[in-house]
Design a protein around this nucleic acid. Structure first.
Lengths: 401, 401
DNA sequence: AGTAATAAGTCAAGACAATTGACTTAATAA
DNA sequence: TTATTAAGTCAATTGTCTTGACTTATTACT
């Protein structure tokens, strides 16, 4: 009672941490390289053949990996490759956006098995929570109808919504989803679904998706510039999503640009919100996506001028990202229509000179990523899969076991 | 020979990885909290009393920790606190700057035991390498004269120099140290000293120093904005220095500012180089430091106007860092004279509103860090100490053992 | 005082997971 | 046909953490 000085220290680890890590390393290797034999795995992970054999046996019992036909490759006994079993695990991903919410069910390899969406009522979270819970329950039920044992193999529910989180009240900035930020979403959904629930912002979710099944697959340092209603950066650093001290890392939309003597957040210049405003379109329109795609394909004059302006800002943003993060590549993705993202990439044109221009560079500096209304929900679902199966430091420590 | 398809996978771990991690966790806990009893350590690290006892016994044998007088604190047997032994390990840090090179010897707790500097001849690296090797040898000899067993306990040589590294030739930009960048520095110094040699940029070194003994001590997410000849950011993310894909993360000096219709790198506006240019001072002057300090304390008009302009750019940079990294705090440090850094902090004044304004915030958004010509060399030395003793993911893996 | 409660720390046996080295199996190269 | 090579298994061993009972030292309570 008298001397409660909290001692801060990192957690130690033990055999189980070791074992858990090695299991994750196997799964990661199979995800990255496709099916591999035990001997391949042993060489790649620096573990012994015997250890790999034991772990693979265990993973096979758990239904996470499965052997394939033996392959003969030269002298010596043919090897038996093992691959991930897609239906070895599932996760639900939920995107909460301004006017709509989307949910998907994905499997261990990131294939989307079920998708569904619902409009969000104007009443805010207290109304919306019910819609969301129903949507999740529906997706879950459909998943159970498609595959066996889905409930037993469900590792969690990932939520993605626009950030930033936990920021001191900015009044009622319509660019932020104030009401949702204050709502006890995690608690409500944990209680309502009984699942392990995680939350990240939409750009982070997009990055998680790109890492699992997209352009960042297998990369350890990549930044996804995500153009949605707002704009944000999802950061893959050292092979993991970086969240920052408060889950708000990458909120580049709030970065200030100085132009015409005044400062403007990037988000007000290069985002779908800014496009809607520029074109005086109602963001609640149902056929928004088609409408924009149409304008882009027609080469509509007003959208072209917005594209030119936004591309300039994105060009600067990419330069900034390269300068500050030194990533292997930058990925431009979004919940914007694919046609628009492609036009933006074209309009960004030659990138600004930066430290990314290295001798011996192999990856392009800028790559297109997913541009699909469902990519954020997919990324949201990829979160729990990654937490459960990807190797990372925290997963080794005793306090996480 | 036929099917050499490189399999990419993370390394597995084993008992020794576990043990190595737990040793590091102990040292880290003692560094962060000061002396702790075995029971305290067991509670803080989630390990058992017995495990902690064994590890502490081993660390004591190795001369890294030492018991202190028992303390009675209420009921129960008095506890015996253990603390780090400063002379348990040493490292040499080397700063290579434009006109000067500095070397220090530090101990396990980051105290500087020896410091020495030398001018760098104009002939470039081929001339300079000899000066550097002599300087390091001198510091090493002095260290050996002060403490016992220093050579046996020397964990490495850390080098800090301005980045970026490995960038495709930008001709002869005087803002970069082209010649040194191309010189095989690591190889030369490894061969010349027989030590384990590491390289980082000066901002990263400054951040490493701040984390070991400065304002970032014990923080897991902090960014050091380093104002030196150039300007850079040292990134502490998830408790470790982040280097990026090529060791160039944080090179914020190359970030472009748009003003007056043209784009300028931050480095050309807010750095000592820009100040020297603004004041038409020769950066090779020996009493540069005193000269600047003098101008600052006099409140010289021309330096004040530079400060006002630089402060505006720094204010923007800090906002950008907060927005992109979501750190616990931002630290302004530099090889600039302390008086100048303090004036800059004052001139930066109230920060721009950002997501760092959170409910329940405890640390200040901006803190002063070290402003000392020796802080980069100290940080360079902190690198090997950190690599050898701090807990981090890579240290657990088999491929690092 | 005397005793109970509490906490630090040790001892010895046990559990867990990776390692080692010899062995088996199955293919190709000579 | 035989030697060589490589995948994979078996059984014993090793390294490290854990467990539970025990000892020691101090304060709190009666």
């Amino acid at each position: 009672m008298n001397d409660i000085r909290p001692i801060r220290a990192k957690s130690g680890t033990n055999h189980e941490g070791t074992s858990a890590h090695n299991r994750r390393v196997m799964i990661d290797a199979l995800r990255m390289n496709g099916a591999l034999s035990r001997a391949d795995l042993a060489r790649a992970t620096w573990l012994t053949k015997q250890t790999v054999s034991n772990i693979i046996e265990e993973l096979e019992r758990d239904g996470l990996v499965r052997s394939q036909a033996a392959v003969r490759k030269g002298r010596g006994q043919p090897s038996t490759p093992y691959g991930l079993v897609p239906e070895g695990a599932f996760a639900i991903g939920l995107q909460i956006d301004r006017h709509v919410t989307r949910a998907v069910a994905v499997d261990l390899v990131g294939s989307v098995l079920v998708r569904d969406e619902a409009g969000l009522p104007a009443g805010g979270p207290s109304e919306g929570a019910k819609v969301i819970l129903d949507l999740v329950a529906g997706v879950r039920a459909k998943l159970a109808g498609i595959v066996q044992q889905s409930e037993k193999r469900l590792v969690g529910l990932g939520i993605a919504m626009p950030g930033p989180f936990g920021v001191a009240g900015s009044g009622d900035d319509p660019w932020m989803m104030e009401a949702w930020q204050k709502f006890p979403l995690l608690e409500t959904l944990t209680a309502g679904t009984g699942l392990d629930v995680g939350l990240q912002n939409d750009a982070a979710a997009a990055a998680t998706a790109e890492r699992m099944v997209g352009a960042a697959h297998g990369l350890d340092h990549a930044v996804c510039l995500f153009v949605g209603y707002g704009i944000g950066a999802g950061l893959i650093l050292n092979g993991e999503l970086y969240r920052g001290a408060n889950g708000n890392a990458g909120e580049i939309g709030m970065a200030l640009l100085f132009a015409d003597g005044k400062s403007t957040p990037l988000e007000h210049r290069a985002s779908l919100a800014s496009l809607y405003q520029y074109l005086s379109i109602d963001p609640a329109d149902a056929d928004l996506h088609a409408q924009i795609s149409n304008l882009v394909s027609r080469g509509d004059q007003s959208i072209e001028s917005w594209i030119a302006a936004a591309a300039a800002d994105l060009r600067w943003s990419i330069h900034l990202i390269e300068t500050i993060f030194d990533p292997q590549t930058v990925i431009l993705c979004g919940s914007a229509p694919e046609a628009l993202v492609n036009r933006l990439i074209a309009a960004i044109g030659p990138l600004l000179p930066s430290i990314a221009e290295r001798r011996g560079r192999t990856l392009p500096r800028l790559q297109p990523g997913m541009a699909d209304p469902w990519s954020v929900a997919l990324g949201a679902a990829a979160g729990p899969i990654s937490r459960a199966f990807d190797p990372h430091f925290a997963a080794i420590l005793k306090d996480s076991l």
